[in-house]
Design a protein around this nucleic acid. Structure first.
Length: 1076
RNA sequence: GCCCGGGUGGUGGAAUGGUAGACACGAGGGACUUAAAAUCCCUUGGCCCGUAAGGGCUGUGCGGGUUCAAGUCCCGCCCCGGGCACCA
């Protein structure tokens, strides 16, 4: 009520008959109704439209469902993916099964979602309410938990919400914030099939790149690449002979094994082929050691000389094929090499090889650089793929990582943590085994919760690989992978088979084509946007109109709306951790009678409530028709009002309210209740008027006496609050620095206190020692003056009320006033920095306040409230008022005596002032540039005052102003200063006994170009762009004439010193520039 | 780190590529007044020359560029505000 009064005082013209309250059942009936429509809808991706759920049921009856259908599921994935069914299977499902399936398509749906659950508080907490794994309030432990949650399938609208932004006249920053929030990224899904686990001993050797000794791999890698690029003649010849699959050994060249780079190797057959140049003794020894080590690792080594290769390459090739054919295929499933058996347990399914890890990537071109795959700690496959011997370690990590809130995971970005699962997946192209890790740098809620890690192409993967010593290869040309990842989009690919030599932009589509051809992946657009959690474990909120039958949610009928909040004994959660509404034991639904039973019998009703944004997502529609009882708003009203023309709101709603608001509007449009799909055409973020917080610093001192001279040994150990010190001293006490200037202040303060103590305890002679600390205290701005000086008496009074001992303040020498430290911040009660408009209105009036707020600067700008300039607008209003009154003034107020205006026709000059003002003001209002319109009014007022004070008495009546000028100005001023304009209007149109005409109903004055026409223009004449003089020429003079006249001017000639100008530019009615 | 805004006198802020600093505050000077308040007038980016009238140089975060002409457009930096963030 107080708030309303203030709004009225300031003169806002709200239509209070249209006031709505989202908490009023008459209003939230329709919020619940919209919820039911969302519950009753699914999203047809082919048509990009929400449609009634009945149409989906019909479709299921006709054709069943498969995952490629257009009614794709978006948003929170259930633990078990929905399996395809045909029309007969659909019909055979029980009702419960059918309902559960439908729930996966409904736009308002119940699903298992991750939440921050606090068992002690029995409630779900928002991310910012959790700090360090405990609740911010109370410090109770919080865990991440999957719980059934109502959600809104906003993700189905992601693309439309993104595209719609282009049409909107909203600030770029808001649009950009929404684009980021929606976070569209194009890329691919890639499937990695799980492989049976090799034994740990063989792992290194079995895995392509992983045959290298990890400690040295990254050093060797560039060499290997270099050697591959610059082969010797013999190497190159042999490579041409044995590359490809024909040899049966799938031979690689310049491969790293352990600490060596071998010339050629067949990994499946474990055969190393070396091509040697001239062999020295020293070299022989090294080669022997190398061969020994390779044999140890299970490789056979055969050698050829350069000569052999160059002279008889085909024979060499034949020998290699022979050697390969003698060797057994080395595979992990071979029991002889893989003694490890898993037995029963979670690892079994992985062993059977049936699982697939799906990853999302925006860089499918880097597929050949994959050196491991990382799963989010929340990933469901972790349990299934981890072999038993690693289970304990992996689960310990998962539990620890999962319970860190997302906020925490974000704040500790730099910390790398993870664990190897022990499982491997097959690379889709090379078929090399790739290890699977768990790492908390992968988020469960984004993409598939799994990434293919390419350390050479992604810095996070690089950090992870480097931290855990996982070897990797570069995938771009000329890149030193020891320094970091190459994330450049301009790079050229290398080491990447069919992608070699391609630019990133070309390689991406090519890679996807290959993936699709091999059926191991496909193009995918992914959105960052997540479905919005809709349920709240709180009492105050709109009840969700849902009841449960057989644990399946069903809609309440429209007749049951509004479903009002039941009465409960307490607003807290129940002892068993259920929401407060669960306390309403007699709140049940009778499905047969279609009504609340009012007893404990019947179907349970949903106990969570709607979030704050539910009601605010559609209120603009209710304004159109606030009293309608039969519909949220009548079609006629909606048709009349349409979209919001101008929405003024804070930018803090950029990704919350302003997105949901658009989402609901699109939904209502889809289902045909409204015919526009964006709620607000234009949106302006008004800046906030900020507060200036004020701070004082108190010294806290403990005093002790040494008990000399017969005083009691401890005279006093008392804390004296309210000893004010400077901010500088406070800061230096805090960080322990010893600036002599501050020490001086401190000493002085201490001396003062000593005196106080002695005064309080006469006769005491002992030495006094102190213990020092200081404290920052927020001061209510109402007891601080404009300059920041604290009102000490009031401060003492306020501190007294806190029932603390009070002593006088002590200041440094020479200081009389205590200046409070200012800090610009949001205005809020808790910050004690709220400036009440009442005081300003009291002193200057509401119009001055309004004008001043507008005059402060552009509407979008935030700035601290500062009354320094308010005199200016106040003076303007007085001057404006005076134009309507006689010269004789009231001595007290400075306001003129009696109202009088002249009926004389205005002069040309007066009309010009009037019409240029009308023009500017009209243009500025359209641009919402209120500060410049106010300034234009000031200009007009000053100009008129000037014109009229030179001709003091129009027609001898004592009038200064002319009606024909002042009346239009009054109308134009009315939106800015309604009170004074109305008052002047009533003076201009005295009550003639008929009905009262308000200025607000007066015809808006139009500016006319004819009054703005000038006869001449004063050209600035510039030389080389620097203005030097002014020359006046009549309007309409041609360019050539102006140029001729300018050049004829003696002063110009003087400046030219007789030389002809290089060039003369004449812009009519703007400028003349002479280039010398 | 990425994405949006910004950076102009002592202050809030004006300037469709065309006279930078409108308008207002503050400050200084003056008028009226016994005095104060109120009101009115003058000056007010910086530096320099001139007794003066007047004139010159310089100036929109920094460095380049385009142009007859740049606060405004382009390139590269710096700083401030806001949004997003291990988003694959």
């Amino acid at each position: 009520a107080r708030y309303r009064e203030q709004l009225d005082n300031i003169g806002f013209s709200f239509d209070w008959s249209r006031e709505v309250r989202t908490s009023d059942p008459a209003y939230y009936k329709w919020t619940q109704w919209i919820f039911l429509q969302l519950f009753d809808s699914w999203y047809d991706h082919a048509a990009q439209k929400s449609r009634p759920i009945n149409e989906l049921i019909e479709r299921f009856e006709k054709q069943g469902w498969s995952s490629n259908d257009d009614c794709a599921i978006t948003g929170n994935e259930e633990l078990d993916p929905l399996t395809a069914f045909n029309q007969d299977e659909w019909k055979a499902f029980s009702e419960k099964q059918q309902q559960q399936i439908l729930l996966r398509f409904r736009l308002a749906y119940l699903s298992e979602a991750w939440v921050n659950w606090c068992p002690a508080l029995g409630t779900v907490l928002a991310n910012d309410e959790v700090k360090d794994g405990v609740s911010e309030r109370g410090g109770h432990p919080v865990e991440r938990k999957r719980m059934p949650q109502w959600s809104m399938r906003i993700t189905a609208f992601a693309q439309r919400l993104l595209d719609g932004l282009d049409q909107l006249d909203w600030s770029e920053s808001i649009k950009e914030a929404q684009r980021n929030w929606i976070g569209r990224s194009e890329g691919a899904i890639i499937r990695f099939a799980l492989t049976p686990n090799p034994s740990p001993q063989e792992r290194d050797l079995r895995l392509g790149y992983l045959t290298a000794d990890p400690s040295i791999a990254s050093e060797l890698m560039p060499h290997a690449n270099n050697m591959r690029k610059n082969p010797t003649e013999a190497e190159d010849k042999l490579w041409q002979l044995i590359r490809g699959d024909e040899t049966g050994g799938r031979i690689r060249r310049q491969h790293i094994i352990d600490r060596f780079i071998v010339d050629f190797v067949s990994l499946p057959k474990r055969l190393v082929i070396e091509v040697d140049g001239d062999i020295h003794d020293l070299q022989k020894e090294e080669d022997a050691a190398r061969t020994e080590r390779l044999n140890e690792l299970g490789f056979e080594v055969i050698r050829f000389s350069n000569d052999e290769v160059l002279k008889n390459g085909l024979e060499v090739r034949r020998q290699i094929i022979a050697a390969l054919s003698k060797r057994e295929e080395f595979v992990a499933s071979d029991e002889a090499h893989s003694p490890l058996s898993f037995g029963e347990g979670p690892g079994v399914r992985a062993h059977s090889g049936g699982e697939v890890i799906e990853v999302f990537t925006t860089r499918p071109d880097t597929i050949f650089g994959v050196s491991f795959v990382t799963l989010a700690p929340e990933h469901e496959l972790i349990q299934k793929i981890t072999p038993p011997e690693r289970m304990e370690e992996v689960m310990a990590y998962v539990t620890q990582a999962k319970n860190r809130s997302e906020r925490e995971r974000m704040t500790e970005v730099k910390r790398v943590s993870g664990v190897f699962t022990g499982a491997y997946v097959k690379h889709p192209f090379t078929h090399i085994d790739v290890p699977v890790w768990v790492g908390d740098y992968v988020l469960g809620g984004y993409g598939t919760g799994a990434v293919m890690a390419v350390p050479a192409g992604d810095q996070r993967d690089w950090n992870f690989a480097t931290h855990f010593n996982i070897p990797f290869v570069p995938v771009t040309e000329n890149w030193d992978i020891s320094k970091g990842a190459d994330e450049s989009k301009e790079a050229t690919l290398a080491n990447s088979a069919f992608l070699n030599g391609m630019k990133v932009a070309d390689a991406i589509p090519r890679a996807i084509d290959e993936l699709e051809a091999k059926c191991v992946g496909e193009r995918r657009i992914n959105f960052r946007l997540r479905d919005a959690a809709f349920g709240r474990q709180r009492y105050w909120g709109e009840p969700i109109p849902i009841y449960y039958k057989d644990d399946v949610p069903y809609a309440l009928p429209e007749s049951a709306l509004p479903l009002v909040l039941p009465e409960v004994d307490k607003f807290q959660p129940t002892e068993t951790g259920e929401p407060p509404l669960a306390r309403a034991t007699k709140w049940r639904w009778d499905a047969a009678d279609q009504q609340l039973t009012g007893s404990a019998i019947g179907h349970p009703i949903e106990t969570t409530t709607m979030p704050g944004w539910a009601g605010s997502s559609w209120y603009f529609l209710r304004y159109m028709d606030p009293q309608n009882e039969g519909r949220f708003a009548s079609p006629e009203a909606i048709n009349y009002w349409q979209q919001v023309d101008l929405y003024v709101g804070g930018s803090e709603h950029a990704t919350g309210h302003l997105l949901y608001f658009r989402f609901w509007t699109k939904f209502l449009k889809d289902r045909g209740w409204i015919d526009f799909d964006e709620p607000a055409k234009k949106l302006v973020n008004q800046g906030m008027i900020q507060g200036v917080g004020r701070f004082a610093y108190e010294l806290l001192i403990g005093i002790q006496s040494d008990g000399r001279d017969g005083s009691p040994p401890v005279l006093a150990l008392e804390w004296i609050p309210y000893v004010l010190i400077s901010r500088e001293l406070h800061l230096s006490l805090k960080d322990g620095s010893t600036d002599p200037k501050h020490l001086e202040e401190l000493q002085y303060t201490l001396d003062q206190i000593g005196d106080l103590i002695r005064d309080a305890h006469p006769g005491h002679q002992g030495r006094i020692t102190y213990r020092k600390a200081s404290l920052e205290r927020r001061v209510d701005v109402s007891i601080v003056d404009g300059r920041g000086v604290l009102d000490l008496a009031k401060y003492a009074e306020a501190r007294n009320q806190e029932k603390k001992t009070l002593q006088n303040g002590a200041f440094a020498p020479g200081v009389v006033d205590y200046f409070c430290h200012p800090e610009v911040e949001k205005m809020s009660k808790s910050k004690l920095n709220v400036v009440n408009p009442d005081d300003i209105i009291e002193k200057y009036g509401a119009d001055t306040l309004r004008l001043y707020e507008m005059f402060l600067g552009p509407i979008e700008q935030s700035k601290p409230w500062d009354t320094n300039g308010i005199e200016g607008t106040s003076r303007f209003l007085k001057k404006f008022w005076n134009l309507f009154h006689t010269e004789s003034r009231n001595q007290e107020s400075g306001i003129s005596g009696s109202f009088i205006v002249s009926e004389e026709a205005p002069s040309k000059a007066e009309l010009k002032v009037l019409h240029s003002t009308l023009k500017k003001v009209q243009e500025d209002i359209e641009k919402l540039s209120f500060n410049t319109s106010v300034s234009q009014f000031m200009i007009a007022c000053n100009a008129l005052q000037e014109l009229w004070s030179n001709a003091p008495s129009q027609s001898g009546s004592g009038a200064r102003g002319k009606r024909q000028v002042l009346e239009p100005l009054t109308i134009a001023l009315a939106p800015f200063a309604p009170h004074i304009a109305e008052e002047l209007w009533s003076l201009l149109h005295p009550d003639t006994g008929k009905e009262f005409h308000s200025v607000t109903t007066a015809q808006w004055p139009k500016w006319e170009a004819q009054f703005l026409v000038e006869d001449s223009f004063s050209y600035p004449i510039s030389f080389n762009g620097k203005t030097r003089m002014q020359l006046e020429f009549p309007i309409g003079l041609s360019k050539e004439e102006v140029e001729a006249q300018v050049l004829a001017n003696p002063e110009v000639q003087q400046r030219l010193e007789g030389k002809p100008p290089k060039k003369v530019i004449v812009v009519p009615e703007r400028i003349v520039n002479i280039v010398v």
